[in-house]
């Protein structure tokens, strides 16, 4: 926060306000809509499980390590800009959400609610390690990634404890199901920077242990280092 002009009053901001919005100004509000590529894929079908994967640029990674085109059929995308993609494999759905603007999470949750009334829902969300709060600093120092869970099905995902919380679409899915007395298996992967070959090992092991076949199809990890060309 600087004052580039002499005498300029630059009012300090507050952490309480995230969204500078003036109701009197006309703005183009984004409205979300489904585009079905193959609606028949889920109509009259018993869906038993939904896996939601959320993170920044997560679809590249998921495409690279999980999605074999012949196994998973893309049946719907949420527009604009295909922020969210829904795939189907037998009686399982996979929802891949490239997190962009967190302010849209509530609207996207509204769109996804129609898929949440199914017996088993698993959420995996990727967050920055800087967001993880703990009194045990060794946890942060000693590992590249930290995996935490709620109602976890794998013993190495220790319970996520207060004051940590999950924000975004995954948080909304768990919250809505819990309010409607439905259980959700939740995993949070805290990573340093973006997912790369090292940090994604936790994720690939988790996919495998919760019953999703892993096949590294291509190397789609973004390089976050400028050290080497």
């Amino acid at each position: 926060m600087g004052c580039p002009f002499f005498g300029e009053i630059n009012e300090p901001n507050s952490r309480a306000f995230w969204d500078d919005f003036d109701e009197n100004e006309s703005v183009n509000t984004v409205s979300f809509s489904w585009e079905y590529i193959n609606k028949n894929a889920i109509e009259n079908q018993e869906i038993e499980e939904l896996l939601l994967i959320e993170g920044e640029s997560i679809s590249n990674v998921v495409d690279g390590i999980l999605m074999k085109p012949s196994d998973f059929e893309l049946f719907a995308v949420l527009n604009p800009s295909q922020a969210l993609k829904m795939y189907k494999n037998a009686n399982k759905l996979i929802c891949v959400y490239n997190r962009r603007d967190i302010l849209d999470s509530g609207s996207i949750l509204n769109e996804v609610m129609q898929f949440l009334n199914i017996p088993k829902v698993i959420t995996i969300s990727i967050h920055s390690k800087a967001q993880y709060k703990t009194e045990n600093l060794r946890e942060i120092e000693e590992s590249f990634t930290i995996l935490k869970g709620l109602n976890s099905e794998v013993d190495y995902a220790k319970e996520l404890k207060c004051p940590n919380f999950i924000v975004g679409l995954s948080g909304g899915v768990i919250s809505w199901r819990q309010a409607n007395n439905m259980r959700t298996h939740t995993y949070v992967v805290y990573v340093d920077g973006s997912l790369d070959r090292m940090t994604s090992k936790t994720l690939t092991k988790l996919f495998s242990d919760i019953g999703y076949k892993i096949e590294v199809l291509s190397d789609k990890f973004r390089s976050s280092s400028y050290l080497y060309m």
Binding site: G106, L109, N110, C162, N164, G168, G172, S175
Partner: peptide, 24 residues
């Protein structure tokens, strides 16, 4: 729940209700 709320979920925020959970 409402579109105006950024969704969130977490363990109980209060020691007197350890089994409750925290929502937006």
């Amino acid at each position: 729940f409402h579109e105006a709320l950024i969704p969130m979920f977490g363990p109980s925020a209060f020691q007197h209700e350890p089994k409750a959970s925290t929502h937006a």
